[in-house]
Amino acid sequence: MTVFLCGFMGCGKTTVGKLAAKKLGCGFCDTDDLIVDDQKMSIPDIFAQKGEPYFRRVEADIVKSVCGKAAVVACGGGAMLNPDTAKAASEAGVVVFLDADFETCYERICNDKNRPIAASSSKEELRERFNTRRVLYIEHSDVQIDCGGSPIETAEKIADAVKKYR
């Protein structure tokens, strides 16, 4: 089964995803890394040279390409906002929303130049995006996990939820 992790930038998808994959005895991948490998350019360069709509199309294709793999997949913050992508992911496995609070996410992303949306947005713009996206993450996910604990605790919650979901 494929486990797709979704949530806002900085919620911990990559960090806890690696830990959850170990607990579940499966592989791990990050869609942002797969996009960089596929496009042979950084995410900021993709945004600058080809635009966000192009990036989102590539992202949707990458998510669909990992459907059916025995892996935990850390999806970019915008991947599961696309209803078709979310549906494909849900049909191939389970979509887990990592629900972290805005301040935690903001602290992690505010100076990250590798996140074009974070780098070009004010804190209030990011808070508005966070609030809008959170509703969609809930709508497009099968399981919601509170990320208030440590990464190990969150990974255990993911593993437990996935085992019950099967």
Score class of each variant (00 low, 15 high):
5 L>E: 10
5 L>M: 09
10 G>W: 11
10 G>D: 10
14 T>M: 08
14 T>E: 08
15 T>F: 07
15 T>L: 12
18 K>D: 11
20 A>C: 03
22 K>M: 06
23 K>S: 10
23 K>N: 09
25 G>A: 00
27 G>N: 12
27 G>D: 14
28 F>M: 11
30 D>P: 01
33 D>A: 14
33 D>M: 11
35 I>P: 04
36 V>I: 15
37 D>F: 13
38 D>L: 15
41 M>H: 02
42 S>C: 05
43 I>Q: 02
44 P>F: 03
44 P>M: 07
45 D>Y: 10
45 D>G: 10
45 D>A: 15
47 F>W: 09
47 F>M: 05
48 A>L: 13
48 A>D: 14
48 A>V: 08
53 P>S: 08
53 P>T: 03
53 P>H: 05
54 Y>A: 14
55 F>C: 00
57 R>W: 06
58 V>R: 03
58 V>T: 10
58 V>M: 03
59 E>F: 06
59 E>A: 05
61 D>E: 15
62 I>T: 14
63 V>M: 02
66 V>N: 04
67 C>E: 00
67 C>I: 00
68 G>N: 02
71 A>M: 15
71 A>Y: 09
72 V>N: 00
77 G>K: 07
78 G>Q: 03
79 A>Y: 06
81 L>D: 05
81 L>F: 06
82 N>P: 11
83 P>W: 06
83 P>M: 03
84 D>V: 13
85 T>A: 04
86 A>H: 01
86 A>K: 01
86 A>R: 01
88 A>P: 00
93 G>W: 01
93 G>F: 03
93 G>I: 01
94 V>M: 11
95 V>L: 02
95 V>H: 02
96 V>F: 01
96 V>R: 00
98 L>C: 02
98 L>V: 02
98 L>F: 00
102 F>P: 09
102 F>S: 07
102 F>V: 08
102 F>E: 08
107 E>V: 09
110 C>H: 15
111 N>M: 12
111 N>C: 13
113 K>Y: 09
114 N>W: 00
115 R>Q: 09
117 I>N: 03
118 A>C: 10
118 A>I: 06
119 A>S: 11
120 S>K: 13
120 S>N: 14
120 S>G: 10
122 S>C: 03
122 S>M: 02
124 E>N: 13
125 E>K: 10
126 L>C: 13
126 L>K: 06
128 E>N: 13
129 R>K: 14
129 R>N: 12
129 R>E: 11
130 F>A: 04
131 N>L: 15
131 N>S: 14
133 R>W: 00
134 R>V: 06
134 R>P: 01
135 V>W: 00
138 I>G: 09
138 I>Q: 09
138 I>K: 12
139 E>N: 12
139 E>D: 13
141 S>L: 01
141 S>C: 07
141 S>G: 02
141 S>H: 01
145 I>M: 03
145 I>R: 00
146 D>L: 11
148 G>H: 01
149 G>C: 05
150 S>D: 08
151 P>G: 08
151 P>R: 10
152 I>D: 15
152 I>V: 15
153 E>M: 04
153 E>S: 10
153 E>Q: 13
154 T>N: 08
154 T>Q: 06
154 T>D: 06
155 A>L: 01
157 K>N: 09
158 I>Y: 05
160 D>G: 08
161 A>W: 04
161 A>M: 07
161 A>H: 07
162 V>I: 13
165 Y>P: 04
166 R>S: 14
